[in-house]
Computed example of a mutant assay.
Amino acid sequence: MIGVDRAVAEFDRALSAVDGRAATSLVRELLDAGEDPLAVLVDVIAAGQRTVGERWQRGEWSIAKEHAATAVAVSATEVVARFAERTPVTRGRVVVACAEREWHALPALIISSAMRLHGWDTTLLGASTSPARLSQCLHDVGPDATAVSCSVLGALPTTRRFIEASTTAGIPVVVGGSAFGSDPTRALALGATAWAPNAQGAVALLDELPAVVRRAAPLPREPLAEQSAIELGHHRLVEVLRGRWSPAARAAPDDPLARKLFSAACGEVLHQALHAVSATLLTGDPRPIPETAAWIDRLLTARGADPRLAAELGDVLASTLRDFPTAHGLVVRHWADGLVLQGETAS
Protein backbone atom coordinates (compact mmCIF):
# COMPACT_ATOMS: atom_id res chain seq x y z
CA MET A 1 0.00 0.00 0.00
CA ILE A 2 1.45 3.34 -1.02
CA GLY A 3 0.35 5.40 2.02
CA VAL A 4 -0.33 9.12 2.26
CA ASP A 5 3.25 10.12 3.19
CA ARG A 6 4.76 8.54 0.10
CA ALA A 7 1.89 9.80 -2.01
CA VAL A 8 2.78 13.42 -1.23
CA ALA A 9 6.05 13.13 -3.16
CA GLU A 10 4.45 11.23 -6.03
CA PHE A 11 1.64 13.75 -6.33
CA ASP A 12 4.18 16.56 -6.38
CA ARG A 13 5.99 14.85 -9.25
CA ALA A 14 2.72 14.55 -11.15
CA LEU A 15 2.00 18.25 -10.66
CA SER A 16 5.52 19.21 -11.71
CA ALA A 17 5.20 17.12 -14.87
CA VAL A 18 1.62 18.38 -15.40
CA ASP A 19 0.64 14.71 -15.65
CA GLY A 20 -3.08 14.48 -15.01
CA ARG A 21 -3.22 10.75 -15.64
CA ALA A 22 -0.56 10.04 -13.01
CA ALA A 23 -2.24 12.31 -10.46
CA THR A 24 -5.70 10.84 -10.85
CA SER A 25 -4.36 7.28 -10.91
CA LEU A 26 -2.48 7.93 -7.68
CA VAL A 27 -5.63 9.25 -5.97
CA ARG A 28 -7.69 6.27 -7.14
CA GLU A 29 -5.01 3.94 -5.82
CA LEU A 30 -5.10 5.63 -2.41
CA LEU A 31 -8.89 5.45 -2.21
CA ASP A 32 -9.00 1.83 -3.38
CA ALA A 33 -6.43 0.97 -0.70
CA GLY A 34 -8.71 2.36 1.98
CA GLU A 35 -6.84 5.56 2.80
CA ASP A 36 -8.89 8.27 4.50
CA PRO A 37 -10.33 10.34 1.62
CA LEU A 38 -10.21 13.51 3.73
CA ALA A 39 -6.48 12.94 4.29
CA VAL A 40 -6.08 12.53 0.54
CA LEU A 41 -7.84 15.87 0.00
CA VAL A 42 -5.95 17.80 2.66
CA ASP A 43 -2.56 16.14 3.05
CA VAL A 44 -1.94 15.24 -0.58
CA ILE A 45 -3.94 17.44 -2.96
CA ALA A 46 -4.25 20.67 -0.97
CA ALA A 47 -0.65 20.42 0.26
CA GLY A 48 0.55 19.90 -3.30
CA GLN A 49 -1.42 22.89 -4.52
CA ARG A 50 0.16 25.12 -1.87
CA THR A 51 3.56 24.10 -3.17
CA VAL A 52 2.46 25.06 -6.69
CA GLY A 53 1.61 28.58 -5.52
CA GLU A 54 4.89 28.91 -3.65
CA ARG A 55 6.87 27.95 -6.76
CA TRP A 56 5.16 30.66 -8.78
CA GLN A 57 5.79 33.21 -6.04
CA ARG A 58 9.48 32.31 -5.96
CA GLY A 59 9.67 32.77 -9.71
CA GLU A 60 10.45 29.09 -10.33
CA TRP A 61 7.29 28.49 -12.38
CA SER A 62 5.47 30.63 -14.90
CA ILE A 63 1.83 31.53 -14.36
CA ALA A 64 1.00 29.22 -17.29
CA LYS A 65 2.60 26.24 -15.57
CA GLU A 66 0.91 27.13 -12.30
CA HIS A 67 -2.47 27.12 -14.05
CA ALA A 68 -1.73 23.83 -15.79
CA ALA A 69 -0.69 22.18 -12.51
CA THR A 70 -3.82 23.55 -10.83
CA ALA A 71 -5.94 21.90 -13.51
CA VAL A 72 -4.25 18.61 -12.63
CA ALA A 73 -5.06 19.14 -8.94
CA VAL A 74 -8.70 19.87 -9.84
CA SER A 75 -8.91 16.60 -11.79
CA ALA A 76 -7.48 14.73 -8.81
CA THR A 77 -9.98 16.36 -6.45
CA GLU A 78 -12.84 15.42 -8.74
CA VAL A 79 -11.86 11.77 -8.25
CA VAL A 80 -12.41 12.22 -4.51
CA ALA A 81 -15.62 14.16 -5.15
CA ARG A 82 -17.04 11.24 -7.15
CA PHE A 83 -15.95 8.85 -4.40
CA ALA A 84 -17.71 11.05 -1.84
CA GLU A 85 -21.00 10.71 -3.73
CA ARG A 86 -21.16 7.13 -2.45
CA THR A 87 -21.58 8.42 1.12
CA PRO A 88 -25.25 8.37 2.20
CA VAL A 89 -26.73 11.77 3.05
CA THR A 90 -27.29 11.67 6.81
CA ARG A 91 -27.15 15.38 7.63
CA GLY A 92 -28.51 18.59 6.12
CA ARG A 93 -27.66 20.63 3.04
CA VAL A 94 -24.88 23.15 2.50
CA VAL A 95 -24.38 25.59 -0.37
CA VAL A 96 -20.64 25.99 -1.06
CA ALA A 97 -19.56 29.02 -3.07
CA CYS A 98 -16.62 31.10 -4.20
CA ALA A 99 -17.13 34.83 -3.74
CA GLU A 100 -17.35 37.00 -6.82
CA ARG A 101 -13.80 37.83 -8.09
CA GLU A 102 -12.58 34.60 -6.49
CA TRP A 103 -11.42 32.44 -9.40
CA HIS A 104 -9.63 29.83 -7.26
CA ALA A 105 -12.33 27.16 -7.36
CA LEU A 106 -10.18 24.29 -6.06
CA PRO A 107 -10.50 25.14 -2.32
CA ALA A 108 -14.30 25.24 -2.61
CA LEU A 109 -14.28 21.88 -4.40
CA ILE A 110 -12.14 20.41 -1.60
CA ILE A 111 -14.46 21.83 1.08
CA SER A 112 -17.55 20.56 -0.70
CA SER A 113 -16.05 17.09 -1.07
CA ALA A 114 -15.02 17.01 2.60
CA MET A 115 -18.55 17.91 3.69
CA ARG A 116 -20.04 15.35 1.36
CA LEU A 117 -17.77 12.68 2.84
CA HIS A 118 -19.32 13.45 6.22
CA GLY A 119 -22.89 12.98 5.07
CA TRP A 120 -23.83 16.52 4.07
CA ASP A 121 -25.74 17.13 0.86
CA THR A 122 -23.74 19.87 -0.88
CA THR A 123 -24.56 22.24 -3.71
CA LEU A 124 -21.32 23.58 -5.20
CA LEU A 125 -21.47 26.86 -7.10
CA GLY A 126 -18.71 27.77 -9.53
CA ALA A 127 -15.87 30.24 -9.34
CA SER A 128 -16.69 33.94 -8.96
CA THR A 129 -20.36 33.49 -8.09
CA SER A 130 -22.37 36.70 -8.05
CA PRO A 131 -24.30 37.70 -4.90
CA ALA A 132 -27.51 37.64 -6.95
CA ARG A 133 -26.86 34.06 -8.05
CA LEU A 134 -26.12 33.02 -4.49
CA SER A 135 -29.33 34.65 -3.24
CA GLN A 136 -31.35 32.78 -5.85
CA CYS A 137 -29.67 29.50 -4.93
CA LEU A 138 -30.38 30.03 -1.24
CA HIS A 139 -34.03 30.68 -2.09
CA ASP A 140 -34.28 27.60 -4.31
CA VAL A 141 -32.30 25.17 -2.13
CA GLY A 142 -33.08 26.36 1.39
CA PRO A 143 -29.80 25.06 2.89
CA ASP A 144 -28.93 24.65 6.55
CA ALA A 145 -25.70 26.60 6.02
CA THR A 146 -23.63 28.50 3.49
CA ALA A 147 -19.88 27.94 3.14
CA VAL A 148 -17.82 30.60 1.36
CA SER A 149 -14.25 30.17 0.10
CA CYS A 150 -12.13 33.30 -0.33
CA SER A 151 -8.42 33.09 -1.15
CA VAL A 152 -7.73 36.63 -2.39
CA LEU A 153 -8.15 39.92 -0.54
CA GLY A 154 -9.85 41.46 -3.56
CA ALA A 155 -12.83 39.14 -3.06
CA LEU A 156 -13.50 40.15 0.56
CA PRO A 157 -15.98 42.92 -0.42
CA THR A 158 -18.14 40.43 -2.31
CA THR A 159 -17.72 37.91 0.50
CA ARG A 160 -19.36 40.52 2.71
CA ARG A 161 -22.26 40.66 0.24
CA PHE A 162 -22.51 36.87 0.44
CA ILE A 163 -22.65 37.08 4.22
CA GLU A 164 -25.38 39.70 4.00
CA ALA A 165 -27.38 37.56 1.56
CA SER A 166 -27.09 34.45 3.70
CA THR A 167 -27.75 36.02 7.09
CA THR A 168 -30.64 38.09 5.72
CA ALA A 169 -32.26 34.74 4.93
CA GLY A 170 -31.43 33.58 8.47
CA ILE A 171 -28.90 31.04 7.19
CA PRO A 172 -25.59 30.69 9.09
CA VAL A 173 -22.46 31.20 7.02
CA VAL A 174 -19.02 29.64 7.47
CA VAL A 175 -16.09 31.30 5.71
CA GLY A 176 -12.49 30.28 5.12
CA GLY A 177 -9.50 30.73 2.87
CA SER A 178 -6.19 32.56 2.91
CA ALA A 179 -7.82 36.00 2.53
CA PHE A 180 -9.05 35.68 6.12
CA GLY A 181 -5.59 35.08 7.58
CA SER A 182 -4.85 32.73 10.44
CA ASP A 183 -7.64 33.57 12.89
CA PRO A 184 -11.34 34.58 12.93
CA THR A 185 -10.77 38.37 13.14
CA ARG A 186 -11.63 39.29 9.55
CA ALA A 187 -14.38 36.72 9.25
CA LEU A 188 -16.21 37.93 12.34
CA ALA A 189 -15.69 41.58 11.39
CA LEU A 190 -17.50 40.87 8.12
CA GLY A 191 -20.39 39.29 10.00
CA ALA A 192 -19.75 35.61 9.32
CA THR A 193 -21.23 33.11 11.74
CA ALA A 194 -17.96 31.18 11.96
CA TRP A 195 -14.47 30.87 10.46
CA ALA A 196 -12.80 27.61 9.51
CA PRO A 197 -8.99 27.30 9.22
CA ASN A 198 -9.18 24.24 6.94
CA ALA A 199 -11.46 21.54 5.53
CA GLN A 200 -11.51 19.53 8.74
CA GLY A 201 -12.43 22.64 10.70
CA ALA A 202 -15.24 23.48 8.31
CA VAL A 203 -16.73 20.01 8.65
CA ALA A 204 -16.52 20.12 12.44
CA LEU A 205 -18.19 23.53 12.58
CA LEU A 206 -21.29 22.47 10.69
CA ASP A 207 -22.67 20.47 13.60
CA GLU A 208 -22.23 23.45 15.93
CA LEU A 209 -23.95 26.14 13.87
CA PRO A 210 -27.21 27.68 15.07
CA ALA A 211 -30.31 26.80 13.07
CA VAL A 212 -31.13 30.47 12.43
CA VAL A 213 -29.01 33.62 12.62
CA ARG A 214 -29.65 37.35 12.65
CA ARG A 215 -28.75 39.57 9.74
CA ALA A 216 -25.12 40.71 9.84
CA ALA A 217 -24.70 44.08 11.53
CA PRO A 218 -23.76 47.12 9.39
CA LEU A 219 -20.06 47.84 8.98
CA PRO A 220 -18.54 51.05 10.42
CA ARG A 221 -19.63 53.92 8.19
CA GLU A 222 -16.49 56.01 7.62
CA PRO A 223 -14.04 53.20 6.76
CA LEU A 224 -16.73 51.62 4.58
CA ALA A 225 -17.19 54.88 2.68
CA GLU A 226 -13.45 55.05 1.92
CA GLN A 227 -13.35 51.38 0.98
CA SER A 228 -16.27 51.82 -1.42
CA ALA A 229 -14.64 54.86 -3.03
CA ILE A 230 -11.31 53.07 -3.45
CA GLU A 231 -13.07 50.04 -4.91
CA LEU A 232 -15.01 52.24 -7.33
CA GLY A 233 -11.82 54.01 -8.42
CA HIS A 234 -9.64 50.89 -8.38
CA HIS A 235 -8.58 50.89 -12.04
CA ARG A 236 -7.90 54.64 -12.06
CA LEU A 237 -5.78 54.30 -8.92
CA VAL A 238 -3.83 51.40 -10.45
CA GLU A 239 -2.96 53.58 -13.42
CA VAL A 240 -1.83 56.39 -11.12
CA LEU A 241 0.39 53.94 -9.21
CA ARG A 242 1.75 52.56 -12.48
CA GLY A 243 2.77 56.05 -13.59
CA ARG A 244 4.48 56.92 -10.30
CA TRP A 245 6.27 53.67 -9.45
CA SER A 246 9.58 52.88 -11.15
CA PRO A 247 10.08 49.09 -11.36
CA ALA A 248 10.96 49.09 -15.08
CA ALA A 249 13.65 51.70 -14.61
CA ARG A 250 15.25 49.96 -11.65
CA ALA A 251 14.97 46.29 -12.60
CA ALA A 252 14.32 45.24 -16.15
CA PRO A 253 15.58 41.73 -17.01
CA ASP A 254 17.71 41.50 -20.14
CA ASP A 255 15.68 38.67 -21.67
CA PRO A 256 12.55 40.00 -23.49
CA LEU A 257 10.32 37.18 -22.20
CA ALA A 258 11.60 37.62 -18.64
CA ARG A 259 10.99 41.36 -18.97
CA LYS A 260 7.41 40.72 -20.09
CA LEU A 261 6.76 38.33 -17.21
CA PHE A 262 8.29 40.77 -14.74
CA SER A 263 6.06 43.54 -16.05
CA ALA A 264 3.00 41.31 -15.61
CA ALA A 265 4.03 40.53 -12.03
CA CYS A 266 4.40 44.25 -11.31
CA GLY A 267 0.89 44.85 -12.62
CA GLU A 268 -0.47 42.17 -10.29
CA VAL A 269 1.41 43.77 -7.41
CA LEU A 270 -0.41 47.10 -7.88
CA HIS A 271 -3.81 45.44 -7.74
CA GLN A 272 -2.88 43.49 -4.62
CA ALA A 273 -1.57 46.59 -2.83
CA LEU A 274 -4.93 48.33 -3.25
CA HIS A 275 -6.83 45.18 -2.31
CA ALA A 276 -4.85 45.02 0.95
CA VAL A 277 -5.87 48.57 1.85
CA SER A 278 -9.48 47.82 0.96
CA ALA A 279 -9.47 44.66 3.08
CA THR A 280 -8.12 46.57 6.08
CA LEU A 281 -10.77 49.28 5.77
CA LEU A 282 -13.46 46.63 5.45
CA THR A 283 -12.41 44.46 8.40
CA GLY A 284 -10.53 46.81 10.72
CA ASP A 285 -7.61 44.35 10.71
CA PRO A 286 -4.38 46.13 9.67
CA ARG A 287 -2.46 42.91 8.97
CA PRO A 288 -3.33 42.61 5.26
CA ILE A 289 -1.15 45.67 4.57
CA PRO A 290 2.18 44.40 6.00
CA GLU A 291 1.38 40.86 4.85
CA THR A 292 0.91 42.11 1.30
CA ALA A 293 4.02 44.28 1.50
CA ALA A 294 6.04 41.22 2.52
CA TRP A 295 4.47 39.15 -0.29
CA ILE A 296 5.32 41.86 -2.83
CA ASP A 297 8.89 42.10 -1.53
CA ARG A 298 9.40 38.34 -1.89
CA LEU A 299 7.73 38.25 -5.30
CA LEU A 300 9.86 41.01 -6.77
CA THR A 301 13.21 40.08 -5.25
CA ALA A 302 12.72 36.47 -6.38
CA ARG A 303 12.61 37.89 -9.91
CA GLY A 304 15.83 39.84 -9.47
CA ALA A 305 14.28 43.23 -8.71
CA ASP A 306 15.93 46.01 -6.76
CA PRO A 307 15.11 45.27 -3.09
CA ARG A 308 14.09 48.90 -2.59
CA LEU A 309 11.12 48.59 -4.95
CA ALA A 310 8.64 47.33 -2.37
CA ALA A 311 9.50 50.16 0.02
CA GLU A 312 9.16 52.66 -2.81
CA LEU A 313 5.74 51.25 -3.66
CA GLY A 314 4.62 51.88 -0.07
CA ASP A 315 5.60 55.54 -0.39
CA VAL A 316 3.84 55.84 -3.75
CA LEU A 317 0.74 54.11 -2.41
CA ALA A 318 0.53 56.43 0.59
CA SER A 319 0.94 59.48 -1.65
CA THR A 320 -1.72 58.25 -4.08
CA LEU A 321 -4.20 57.72 -1.25
CA ARG A 322 -3.83 61.18 0.33
CA ASP A 323 -7.47 61.96 -0.49
CA PHE A 324 -8.47 58.96 1.67
CA PRO A 325 -7.22 59.93 5.15
CA THR A 326 -7.90 56.64 6.92
CA ALA A 327 -6.37 54.56 4.12
CA HIS A 328 -3.40 56.92 3.85
CA GLY A 329 -2.71 56.64 7.57
CA LEU A 330 -2.94 52.86 7.51
CA VAL A 331 -0.36 52.58 4.73
CA VAL A 332 2.00 55.01 6.46
CA ARG A 333 1.75 53.10 9.75
CA HIS A 334 1.79 49.50 8.57
CA TRP A 335 3.38 49.02 5.13
CA ALA A 336 6.99 49.00 6.31
CA ASP A 337 6.19 46.47 9.04
CA GLY A 338 6.09 43.77 6.39
CA LEU A 339 9.33 44.61 4.63
CA VAL A 340 12.67 42.97 5.16
CA LEU A 341 15.28 44.53 2.92
CA GLN A 342 18.62 42.78 2.66
CA GLY A 343 18.05 41.19 6.07
CA GLU A 344 17.06 44.42 7.81
CA THR A 345 13.58 45.61 8.78
CA ALA A 346 12.50 48.50 6.60
CA SER A 347 12.00 51.81 8.35
Results as ranks from 00 to 15, higher is better:
Ser128Leu: 03
Ala81Gly: 08
Arg101Glu: 15
Ser75Gly: 04
Trp103Ile: 15
His67Arg: 05
Pro88Asp: 02
Val72Cys: 01
Arg116Lys: 14
Thr77Phe: 01
Ala127Glu: 10
Ala76Val: 00
Pro107Cys: 12
Leu106Glu: 12
Thr129Ser: 07
Arg86His: 13
Ala127Cys: 05
Gly126Lys: 02
Val94Lys: 13
Arg101Ile: 13
Gly126Asn: 07
Gly126Arg: 04
His118Lys: 14
Arg86Val: 10
Ser128His: 04
Leu134Lys: 00
Leu106Tyr: 08
Arg82Lys: 14
Ser112Cys: 09
Arg133Lys: 13
Ser75Asn: 09
Thr70Leu: 02
Ala108Tyr: 05
Thr122Phe: 11
Arg82Leu: 10
Arg82Thr: 14
Ala68Ser: 04
Gly92Lys: 12
Ala68Met: 09
Glu102Asp: 11
Ala108Lys: 06
Ala71Tyr: 00
Trp103His: 15
Cys98Lys: 04
Val95Met: 04
Leu134Tyr: 00
Ser128Asn: 05
Thr123Asp: 13
Val94Gly: 09
Ser75Asp: 12
Val96Trp: 10
Thr123Gln: 12
Thr122Met: 07
Ser135His: 07
Pro88Gly: 13
Thr77Lys: 03
Gly119Lys: 07
Leu109Lys: 12
Thr129Ala: 08
Ala69Thr: 02
Ser128Ile: 03
Glu100Ala: 11
Arg93Trp: 14
Ser135Asn: 09
Ala68Val: 00
Ala97Met: 11
Glu85Met: 08
Arg116Val: 10
Asp121Phe: 07
Ile110Trp: 10
Ser130Pro: 06
Ala68Asn: 00
Glu102Phe: 04
Ala97Tyr: 04
Ala108Gly: 09
Pro107Gln: 06
Glu78Asn: 11
Met115Gly: 08
Ile110His: 14
Ser128Glu: 10
Val89Thr: 15
Leu109Tyr: 12
Gly119Glu: 07
Asp121Lys: 14
Arg133Leu: 12
His104Val: 04
Val95Asn: 03
Pro88Val: 01
Val74Trp: 02
Ser112Asn: 05
Pro131Ala: 04
Trp103Gln: 15
Arg116Leu: 06
Arg93Met: 12
Ala108Pro: 06
Val95Cys: 07
Ser75Leu: 12
Trp120Ser: 08
Ser112Gly: 15
Ala81Glu: 04
His118Tyr: 13
Phe83Trp: 15
Arg116Met: 15
Ala69Leu: 00
Ala73Gln: 00
Arg133Gly: 12
His67Asn: 06
Thr129Glu: 03
Arg93Phe: 11
